[in-house]
Simulated scan of single mutants.
Amino acid sequence: MKSYLLRLMMVALMAPASVLAAPLQAVLVGDYRPLRAAEAEQISEGFEAQLLARLGTVLDSEMTLVGAKGQADLRAGALESGVAYYRSEVAALTSSEGGPFEWSDLAGETFCVTIGSPHASVVTARFGGIARSYPSAAQALIGLKLGECQAVVDDRLLLDKIARLPEWRRYDRLLPALPDSELALRIEAGDAALQRRVEQAVSGWLEDGQLADLTQHWVDEVAFQAYVLADTLDCH
Rank of each mutant, 00 (worst) to 15 (best):
L24D: 08
Q139I: 08
A38S: 14
E182Y: 09
L211P: 10
S104K: 02
V29L: 05
A189F: 06
I142P: 09
E89A: 14
R7A: 14
V153Y: 05
A151L: 11
P34S: 04
A138R: 11
R197V: 01
A76P: 06
R36Y: 00
L6H: 04
D234M: 13
G190P: 04
S181I: 06
R87D: 08
V11Q: 04
P23L: 03
V202Y: 02
I142H: 02
E199M: 09
P135K: 03
L106S: 00
D220A: 08
G56S: 04
A92H: 01
W205R: 00
M10V: 13
Y171E: 01
L233R: 12
S95A: 15
D191Y: 11
V202E: 02
D73R: 02
E89V: 09
T64N: 11
L141N: 04
A137Y: 06
R33G: 05
S203G: 15
L185V: 01
R173A: 08
S104E: 15
A192W: 05
A17K: 14
A15R: 13
A15Y: 10
L93A: 05
V198M: 09
D73P: 02
D105P: 11
A53L: 06
A140Y: 01
A15G: 07
V90Q: 08
V27C: 03
T215H: 04
R169T: 11
I43H: 03
M14N: 07
I115G: 01
A84K: 01
R170D: 15
E39P: 05
Y4M: 12
A22N: 13
V219H: 01
A163G: 09
P179S: 07
L211D: 08
S117D: 15
A53N: 11
H236F: 12
V83Y: 09
D213G: 13
L65D: 07
L233T: 08
A138L: 13
A92C: 01
Y4Q: 12
V228L: 15
S95P: 12
D73N: 07
A22V: 11
I162V: 15
E97V: 15
V122T: 12
S3Q: 10
